[in-house]
Design a protein around this nucleic acid. Structure first.
Lengths: 201, 201
DNA sequence: AAAAAATCTTAAACTACATTAAGACCATTT
DNA sequence: AAATGGTCTTAATGTAGTTTAAGATTTTTT
């Protein structure tokens, strides 16, 4: 099966081989199970209330995963850019309604695997258990760090840390998205930025 | 090798078989690699600045994992009670200094596996990759939920949620620990509790 | 090119939570 | 039995962040 440049599983395979090299059979499985799909800006990969049925790997573009609460406020729990995996794992594995939306912030090309195919992947090539164990361990470490920051740091500290950790996202995202990620209002973020500017740098 | 009732790997094996059944060789490996150890109340399993060298499974008792910041404030990122796993994964896998302390809040019996033995376990019996993948996926889901709450809920909502999720911890821990977990001061927690009492229930 | 929509900034009034302090109630040690 | 030290509460004052609102700037749509 021929795929265009934009839709090959090459970047995904490179990403996985970063953990452990794959043999040709394993690459073949990745190639079979992951399907390319383009989402236009503002399209939804997942909507709150639906069951999350696919794991997504971002080839190009940018997604956000967020929740809208009862008051209508938006809370972003994750951005996903090139070479990131994203899904609502809770919903994906337990087949229950998701609390989250996943939405394209730019035109975004993803490689998607269905739940049942992911299960097949684990069964047919157990190496993927090891690879995904390592990947989710890394994701866990990052998430734990973010939780710690949210418990223990001021908004200014969190913003400064964000600018260091995700410099490439700073100019790519509107401030209102960054504020929703930091857990503050856009107005307060604006204030923080002007304070940081005033106090040199 | 004989072990006393308190120090068998039985509860751990039951815990792991909750995910996938083990054959006798696999059980044997668990039995060999996990070593029992008793920590007295206030003893440290891990101290900030040291490298985390073991993964811990709690058989009996209660641990807390926390960070002391520059101001001297304590921030609890996880409690671990019976049938919980706990370690600083970041430090364990990258062999770097940990930012966290793990301390016994009660006399606590744990089963510990060294990093190199954990690696051996994964290599000798690949099934453990699958088991630990599932375990850490579950942990990730819980952590993500907690992050969302911390971004989006008031302290009162977080406390109410804590009482529902961890009713068994409520009477077991001093309020000051719960406050450090919720990310608020003990004084404010006291206020929240009296408000909840006043407004019926 | 104009119109519409989203974004960013500033500022005043408000609220959730922190800080400090003091006293009451325990539990543990001596 | 007294003393010590941790725990819980209440209250006054302070501060980080919200809300509301309005104007300026940029981006998107028509």
């Amino acid at each position: 099966m021929e795929r265009s440049d934009e839709t090959t599983t090459k970047p995904l395979i490179a990403f996985l081989e970063n953990i452990i090299p794959l043999n040709s059979g394993e690459k073949q499985l990745v190639n079979e199970y992951f399907k390319p799909r383009l989402y236009r800006k503002r399209q939804y990969i997942l909507q709150q209330g639906d069951v999350c049925r696919r794991l997504n790997f971002v080839v190009r573009g940018c997604l956000r995963m967020y929740r809208v609460d009862e008051k209508g406020d938006i809370h972003i729990i994750q951005f996903a850019v090139e070479n990131n995996l994203i899904a609502d794992l809770g919903s994906l594995y337990s087949h229950t309604a998701s609390h989250f939306n996943i939405e394209a912030l730019e035109d975004t090309m993803v490689l998607q695997i269905e739940y049942k195919d992911l299960f097949e992947l684990y069964t047919q090539a157990p190496k993927f258990n090891r690879i995904f164990r390592v990947l989710i361990e890394n994701a866990y470490i990052i998430l734990q760090d973010r939780l710690l920051q949210n418990i223990s740091s001021t908004a200014q500290e969190r913003y400064s840390s964000f600018t260091k950790t995700y410099p490439h996202l700073l100019n790519r995202l509107p401030q209102t998205q960054i504020a929703a990620y930091l857990g503050i209002t856009p107005e307060f973020l604006s204030k923080i930025k002007s304070e940081l500017l005033r106090n040199g740098k």
